[in-house]
Design a binder for these strands. Structure first.
Length: 597
RNA sequence: GGCUCUGUAGUUCAAUGGAUAGAAUAGCGGUUUCCUAAACCGUAGAUCCGGGUUCGAUUCCCGGCGGAGCUACCA
């Protein structure tokens, strides 16, 4: 980062000296030199030909010569076609390493009191179903995005909106009332969210049976649906709930608490958390108010049947329903209310919604509506849209029982990690507690990394078999690299070797060492870029590259037994810095790195 | 039909408009007297099709073809 920036400035100076022309930073295209060529950074000279009025090779040659003569961080250069490959001096690399070395453990850009405030909404579960694989991607992306933003010096408020009201909730309540026999999570030995989810499924089953028997009597499907006793009861329950009927509300609270306890357990294991949770049951009325205000101000209109609509045709969109004919609110109404409450609660600069791409249209509309209602934050809201998670067999379908449950998945990942460790004899001689801890870190690391390394925007395929693979571009590989480095440092300590704080300035770096130092130097820049582009996955691929380079490096050199003492010291410091960077990178993913594994 | 996203090795993923399109897996062939082999090395294999802009296109634009999603008085 620092070197790249410095280089750009020097090159701008060089061009001024050579061609008496001013160029913008953006015209200086620097990139990492490809492995097969000598050098660290490459200047692409094609965009500069207009200024130099010379052939690419000549231009590159001239700039290269000027730099070699005048810039003290350049130790050499070579020209291939229009590409100017620049070599950086060992001294410059070492100074950079010392800077990194001086950083605190997680010392990215520090967060200050007046830093921009970002509110990030993620997770957003329904209280009638346990979390599944899709939520896992949501939670991990949301949490990781928050970490990346904070690393870039932003204040972050993590928030969640719980969809805790509506007919779907009444369905599971009704099923529990009818067939539950007072079952509780304790008596059933199930997590609360799973218990409620099971009753939701039970309702659906019973409802289908009812429809089938009605249809047998000769009713059409629509008639059967209209006559369904069960559905009528569910609707009646919703009416009672909205009217504040004590018994209904009490049951609702009791069952919701079971669900929240279940969710909390899942969140804790995933390592995600929230600073402020909003409940739809408490925000939908505010939304209704806002919509009615908009109506009275002539922003919206009312149809003959009483329903309220927004005309979005001036924005190239359709008409959008905001309140039903019976006055009840819809999803959009609730999101308007939630947004208002949030901005009342916090001085938010940017609101980010981590929600799947099936809702792209919804957030496009929400942004316009908030803007119409006069909230200046409407226009700038960010929909952090991510793709669906599919299985090798295709989409997850609850009806076909192909939904991957989040809790079951985590259990399976950790179990597999434990089994594999055992087979490899890694668990010999360590306590059960430590083995458990390592299995948890590795299993969860595999899951998190597998999901986060994919560019958020894209749909992805989740293959359970491959996700628990510990080879290649995986979390465990990176964790393993970290553990090996810790082992090196530990052994050095046992031999009485201390890792030097200051580095000798006279060292010459091998190509491999230069490669590693370069990766270290660029890490902060990647984190910045990830924060600016809301692209979390950049970091994963980067840390993997670093880990891979180190493994190769490690394989080729015997670090501690190096005869040359300063070189040994240097490599120890390098190892320490790599371990630190891996740890920082993985923390941005919410992944823990074991000291040994 | 309209709108949005997407199309890269057998498979899963990379690639600010730059050099010979990278990895990983699976395949084939190797490396353990090497302080962690969950490692390392070699080998083979891909940009959906057709135009355009550009010195230069996987990337940007237009047109096809394929996939996903949205287009609900569900959330």
């Amino acid at each position: 980062m620092h070197i790249e920036n410095t280089l750009q400035k020097i090159i701008i100076h060089a061009i001024k000296e050579l061609y008496q022309a001013d160029v913008e930073m953006s015209q200086i295209t620097l990139q990492k030199t490809k492995k097969e060529f000598k050098g660290h950074y490459t200047l692409v000279t094609f965009p500069l030909l207009r200024i130099s009025r010379k052939k690419p090779e000549e231009t590159a040659e001239e700039i290269g010569s000027w730099l070699a003569a005048n810039a003290d961080i350049i130790s050499g250069f070579n020209v291939i076609k229009g590409f100017l490959n620049l070599e950086i001096t060992a001294g410059a690399w070492l100074r950079l390493l010392e800077q990194i070395d001086a950083q605190a453990d997680y010392g990215f850009t520090p967060v200050t009191d007046n830093a921009p405030l970002y509110m990030v909404e993620y997770s957003s579960p329904n209280t009638n179903k346990p979390l599944h694989l899709g939520h896992v991607r949501n939670n991990l992306l949301g949490h990781s995005l928050c970490e990346v933003l904070a690393a870039n010096g932003k204040r972050v408020v993590k928030t969640n909106i719980v969809n805790d009201r509506g007919i779907h909730i009444c369905k599971s309540m009704l099923a529990w009332q009818k067939w539950g026999n007072d079952e509780t999570p304790e008596s059933a030995g199930k997590k609360g969210d799973h218990l409620i989810g099971d009753y939701y499924v039970l309702f659906d089953k019973k409802y289908k049976e009812e429809l089938a028997s009605l249809q047998e009597k000769g009713l059409a499907k629509e008639e059967a649906e209209a006559q369904s006793q069960l559905m009528a009861e569910a609707r009646e329950m919703l009416r009672k709930w909205e009217a504040g009927d004590q018994e209904t509300v009490h049951l609702w609270k009791r069952m919701n608490d079971w669900v929240y306890a279940g969710f909390d357990q899942t969140y804790r294991r995933m390592g995600v958390s929230f600073d402020k949770i909003y409940y739809e049951s408490k925000t939908y009325l505010a939304g209704k108010e806002e919509v009615l205000r908009g109506l009275s101000q002539g922003l919206f209109y009312r149809k003959e049947d009483g329903s309220v609509w927004a005309d979005l045709t001036p924005y190239g969109l359709d008409h959008k329903l905001l309140l039903r004919a019976d006055g009840t609110s819809v999803y959009m109404t609730q999101d308007i209310g939630t947004a208002k409450l949030r901005f009342d609660d916090y001085p938010i600069n940017t609101m980010i919604y981590v929600v799947g791409n099936e809702q792209n249209y919804h957030f496009q509309v929400l942004s316009i509506l908030l803007d119409m209602l006069g909230f200046e934050f409407g226009k700038g809201l960010v929909h952090f849209s991510y793709g669906m998670v599919e299985l090798p067999e295709g989409k997850m379908k609850s009806r076909e029982g192909t939904v991957v449950d989040a809790d079951a998945l985590m259990v399976e990942m950790v179990e597999t990690a434990r089994e594999t460790s055992k087979e490899l004899g890694k668990l010999d001689g360590i306590s059960t507690e430590e083995a458990d801890k390592i299995a948890e870190m590795v299993g969860m690391g595999a899951l998190k990394y597998f999901i986060l390394k994919v560019a958020p925007k894209k749909n992805m395929t989740f293959n359970p078999k491959e996700s628990i693979d510990f080879n290649g571009n995986t979390g465990p590989f990176i964790q393993y690299t970290h553990a090996r480095i810790q082992s090196v440092l530990r052994k050095a300590g046992e031999e009485g070797i201390t890792v030097p704080e200051k580095l000798e300035n006279s060292l010459s770096l091998s190509e491999k060492e230069e490669g590693l130092v370069q990766l270290l130097a660029e890490f902060d820049a990647v984190v910045k870029q990830a924060g600016a582009e809301y692209n979390v996955s950049l970091i994963g691929n980067y840390v993997y590259e670093l880990a891979k380079e180190f493994n190769q490096f490690y394989h080729d050199f015997s670090i501690l037994r190096e005869e040359n003492i300063p070189l040994r010291d240097f490599r120890l410091t390098l190892s320490k810095n790599i371990a630190l960077t891996i740890k920082k990178g993985m923390k941005l993913f919410g992944i823990e790195v074991p000291e040994r594994m």
